[in-house]
Amino acid sequence: MSSFDITSTTQPLGRSYLSEITQETLALTKRLFLQLFRRPSTLIAGLLQPLIWLLLFGALFSNAPDDLMPGGISYGRFLGAGVIVFTAFSGALNAGLPVMFDREFGFLNRLLVAPLRSRSSIVFASIIYITVISFLQSFAIMATASFLGYGTPGLGGFVLVLATLLLLVFAVTALSLGLAFALPGHIELIAVIFVANLPLLFASTALAPISFMPTWLGWLAALNPLTFAIEPIRAAYSGSLDLGTVLLHAPYGDMTGYGCLRVLLVLTFGLFLLIRPLLNRKLA
């Protein structure tokens, strides 16, 4: 038997709020990344799936007339923005799954018994994790799109892509975390993800412009948050960085790049405000 005193070491030092919340958030984020690296199949699938979309869908319309797409861009270049946004959206929609599993397996209780300075660190960790993954996926898509000859955004365009993705990822992560606490179990959460994913893709401008769609679908696409993320990124790919120009001819009127980003911003804050009472209650 050892001779040390198991109750002898010093108590935690009093530290600042910011320092403690950073420590909590980094520790929780590290856990998510350790899970990812030790189960890399999800990361590999998450990287491969959008590349397959890009490759197959890009090839599907490769012989389409040059002037088919708005602005005369190739279908591959048109598709790139859609695949980037859809990939980020799918990833963020899954953000609630680890939290749901933690709820189900009781690991969340371990976190809640700890004297977290703010339980928001649980939410922050999820957001950081999903954002990094989404960016990694987006870089892979951009690199592949460039390799396939679908072009690249300039430096400004690149920043616009990241900013737009950031807004979308924040909004959808908030929604997914809200669902993870509102739904009774992972089966229900997966069902919601399954039902939401593809319909939202098809009812957006990811694969085709609104002008190709019947009126009812055009309305849906023009109201779909994915569209408001796709259009600025598509603009970044087209070489035009003037966010004051009209990017979306919606049935209810024209939307500029700024308009699209404003909608995303409102959506992000709105969703966070919407789920806040739920998170406060569940994490109280």
């Binding site: 420590q23 929780l28 350790l34 899970q35 690991f107 976190l111």
Partner: peptide
């Protein structure tokens, strides 16, 4: 707790490190 809630992917040491960080 009665039901041991651990993260199966982490090592025991990593779990304790996480716990230590959550207790600052």
């Amino acid at each position: 707790a009665q039901e041991v809630a651990i993260d199966k992917i982490l090592t025991g040491k990593e779990l304790l490190q996480l716990q230590g960080d959550l207790y600052h």
